[in-house]
Design a protein around this nucleic acid. Structure first.
Lengths: 152, 152
DNA sequence: ATAAAGTTGGTCAGTCTGATCAAGCTAGCG
DNA sequence: CGCTAGCTTGATCAGACTGACCAACTTTAT
């Protein structure tokens, strides 16, 4: 993966909101040559610095208005199996291994509190997962964003 | 905000990887009329069902290879001030209010463990924030994704 | 049954894309 | 100091795409 420089970030900034902006418009808006913008866009999308487009979709728009965080403790000899099983659950959006007492921190969504119960049960049933603790999000205080990082 | 139907999801699925795919290609790949794809894309981007494009950028590509979760306890009479202050910190990617003992769960990134220390200190200094506990992510086990939800 | 909303397929002028090239700039290196 | 490698620029071309229309048809909800 590649580190994005100031020009890349300016391009991304200008593409915010509308990723289908014509390259020529971008170029003149940023004071760059068309070829420059074109090659940089090309590079960014092949270098793996961007998530798939669908990561832009708000889960709420897909009928999953309930979000939560599940922390899981696991039998570490089955770590890889557990991860593979989690990957199969579509409601699992993200999973991190934090330093500290919990082994995995899992971000999930669901269509309702009741559905959240189902999802967390599915997680509990993954091989290698010993115990889970689910904490539902009452409110999304700051929605996910990267915008501030583009500037610096 | 609008709930996305099966057609919307198919369009989004086809746009994964390359959001600049020509509309005509999309249309014939999905067996839809060009006008349909065009109007749906239009609707999706104006209805607020999508995050800004820059949310696709991996923080690591912006030099923030370290991720962490900060849980904060706060003086609830200053809730709004605290949130406003957090919003000013670019390294704060996301913030949720969970049910339970912690008041806010904050997703942050930083350029190094040392920088993470700085960021969590900045959070601790926000008005209304009483106590924080930072837990660094050793590993991103499952990177953020929504793909699985598009299908169902 | 009927109205509203969404879909389809067609057309149009104007614009954009991707590819390619030669030339200019800049930084790093011997 | 002069060279190379890697970007950037500006230009050109044929071909494809866009956004805006429209009339007709289908679906959905009332």
């Amino acid at each position: 993966m590649q580190e994005l420089d100031a020009t890349d970030r300016r391009i991304l900034g200008a593409l915010d909101e509308d990723p289908r902006l014509p390259i020529m418009v971008l170029a003149q808006r940023l004071g760059l040559a068309r070829g420059t913008v074109q090659s940089r866009l090309e590079r960014m999308s092949t270098s793996g610095a961007l998530r798939p487009n669908s990561s832009r979709v708000l889960p709420a728009a897909l009928g999953r208005g309930v979000a939560a965080s599940v922390s899981a403790e696991l039998d570490q000899s089955h770590l890889n199996e557990a991860i593979a099983a989690l990957r199969e659950i579509p409601e699992v959006l993200e999973c991190h291994a934090p330093a500290g007492d919990t082994d995995l921190l899992i971000r999930v969504v669901a269509s309702s509190p009741d559905d959240l119960y189902r999802v967390s049960e599915e997680i509990r049933l993954c091989p290698g997962i010993v115990r889970t603790s689910t904490s539902m999000f009452l409110r999304e205080v700051i929605p996910y964003r990267t915008t501030g990082l583009l500037g610096g």
